[in-house]
Simulated scan of single mutants.
Amino acid sequence: MSSTKAWLRSFWPAPMAISKSQQAFSCLGAFLGLSFTAWFCHSVLGESGLWLIAPMGASAVLLFAVPSSPLAQPWSILGGCIVSALVGVSCARWLGHSGWVAGLAGGLAIAVMFALRCLHPPGGAVALSAVLAGEPVAQMGYHFVVYPVAINAAAMLLIALLFNNLLHRRYPHRVSDHQNPHKTTDALPRDRVGFTPDDLDAVLRARGELLDIARDDLEEILRQTEERAYRRRFGEIRCVDIMSGDVISVNPQTPISEALSILLEHRLNALPVINQNKQLQGMLNLHDVVATADAQDTCEQIMQRNVLTCRAEWPVSYLLESLGSSVEHRMPVLGENKVLMGIVTQTDLVAALYRTALETPA
């Protein structure tokens, strides 16, 4: 009986972990994408033929509601719709317009999309439309592939690129680079203990099924889950608790020769550059100083402005990812208005984790 109840409960929809604002943006994006596509294609094609096909509604769901899905990427919508249209038109031309031909077209379209790595669910609907849409599509023949299918897909993709990037959504989804920043064959420090990208790939291959989530997104979710579990076990240690507060620094107008003397005297390989209000302006690295030919240059001229930073109240678990996967081995700790409060190094982080582990009951 319990198994039957569990089976019946599986029909009840699971909660969706998406904010109301993102839901609203998804609806707005779909409206803009479909409206623009309809207007543009009607302007180009006029009343003489099809100017918007129904499968674009399904594409809108993917492009604007789940843009991180592998099924919603640019090659998926363009390649998936175009090759499915080719398959559908070919099946209709050679085999007719019956129901079994529509089924064959749908199956072959999926096979071709798998082979070309452009799986896009609305592609199956495009293939069926080419077979069952009737005389207008039959008369168009292979022109159906170009218009309306290819033009529809390209117009939808254009709006998706603009809309999603304006909202700072990662689109198209870019594969993360797991190479060691020091250009050695060693794995990143974060990958030397715990699961590695190779472990994740092996598990996905063993499952042998397509998951509607990008591999990098899945990896990021698992790593964030590990961080939350760590914080629950060891408590919240903040960056301000482990930082070095007595920070040696220079100002933007400090000559390089003077900065080099400070670096050598204190045996440092980097210095924060701050203004008169103690606000961080950048970091001066020893490597850049040594590579500078003119010793009369100032720190402002060669300092690194794009600097990884953290806030004083942030948990140190944030540092585990940032310091473990970049070439930097230290991170400025900022207060209000970018005022420099201290520096956290990898040594500070290791010492804090070691002390916490000793004090945590087994």
Rank of each mutant, 00 (worst) to 15 (best):
P15M: 05
A17N: 14
I18S: 09
S19G: 15
A24Y: 13
F25I: 08
C27V: 15
F31H: 02
E47R: 13
E47T: 13
G49R: 14
W51S: 11
W51E: 00
P55C: 03
M56W: 03
A58W: 07
A58I: 08
S59I: 10
L62E: 08
L63R: 01
C81V: 06
V83C: 13
H97L: 05
S98Q: 08
S98V: 01
A102H: 04
G106N: 05
G107Q: 00
L116A: 14
P122E: 01
G124M: 03
P136G: 03
A138G: 12
Y147V: 11
N152I: 02
N152R: 04
A153M: 04
M156V: 13
L158P: 00
L166T: 12
L167P: 01
V175K: 15
S176G: 01
D177Q: 14
H178F: 15
A187P: 03
D191Q: 07
G194R: 00
T196Q: 15
D198L: 05
D199M: 07
D201I: 03
A202H: 13
D212R: 13
D212H: 10
R215V: 08
R223Q: 15
E226W: 12
E226F: 09
R231N: 12
R231D: 11
G235K: 11
R238I: 06
C239D: 07
M243F: 03
P255C: 06
E265P: 00
Q281E: 15
L286E: 05
H287Q: 13
D288Y: 11
T292I: 09
D294W: 06
A295N: 07
Q296H: 14
E300K: 10
I302F: 08
Q304W: 09
R311S: 12
E313P: 00
L319E: 11
L320G: 05
E321R: 14
L323H: 06
M341G: 07
V344A: 01
T345K: 03
A351R: 11
Y354F: 15
T360Q: 14
T360D: 07
